[in-house]
């Protein structure tokens, strides 16, 4: 028997989003984690071609077969995520699960730090510094790695581990080209 929140879960996960244990959908996370629900839901979603996967305190859908175009698109998006993660990792406060970032605070840090400024200029085309920060934070929020708590605050989700894991799998070869191992 699938839980009553199945539709809600599907609605979130099918958009490529994550359900993290520390986000506003913590109840859904608990629902999936509850007793046999994960198994039941995994089987249930498998029937319609979605593979429910569990990470470190988060759930997501994976696809076994993907078209090359899709894959390319995802890789492109991922490349952007890497740049954004690189930016966040250079901040005074590192993107650890649960960290709360304030847009104004990041903008101030960028204003004071030339390196950060260069990085954010490279990853966002917005005019104002705060808009740039919103842009990059929004990008991670759209991916489900951050969650906007209020107008000025973003919180790092457990799903950030997904990004970290994937990034850690990247090997850089001698010729400087990146390749997914």
């Amino acid at each position: 028997m699938v839980p009553k929140q199945t539709a809600e879960i599907f609605q979130i996960l099918s958009k490529g989003n994550f359900i993290s244990s520390n986000g506003s959908q913590a109840r859904l996370y608990d629902c999936i984690s509850h007793e046999e629900n994960f198994k039941v839901l995994k089987e249930y979603f498998a029937h319609i071609g979605y593979h429910l996967e569990s990470g470190h305190n988060y759930y997501y859908f994976s696809q076994q077969d993907e078209t090359n175009t899709n894959m390319e698109k995802k890789l492109e998006q991922f490349a952007h995520f890497i740049d954004v993660m690189d930016f966040f990792s250079c901040l005074d406060v590192k993107p650890v699960t649960g960290t709360r970032y304030r847009v104004t605070q990041i903008a101030e840090e960028c204003f004071a730090n030339e390196r950060l400024r260069q990085k954010i200029y490279a990853i966002s085309r917005k005019d104002k510094l705060t808009d740039k920060v919103i842009d990059v934070a929004g990008a991670l929020a759209n991916g489900g790695f951050l969650e906007q708590e209020d107008e000025d605050t973003y919180k790092v989700m457990d799903a950030i581990h997904y990004l970290e894991t994937i990034i850690s799998l990247i090997t850089i070869e001698d010729d400087g080209e990146q390749k997914n191992s």
């Binding site: 244990s21 520390n22 650890v96 699960t97 649960g98 708590e149």
Partner: peptide, 9 residues
């Protein structure tokens, strides 16, 4: 950070 992050601000 992770602990406090789970609670409301």
């Amino acid at each position: 950070t992770e602990f406090t992050g789970r609670f409301r601000p």
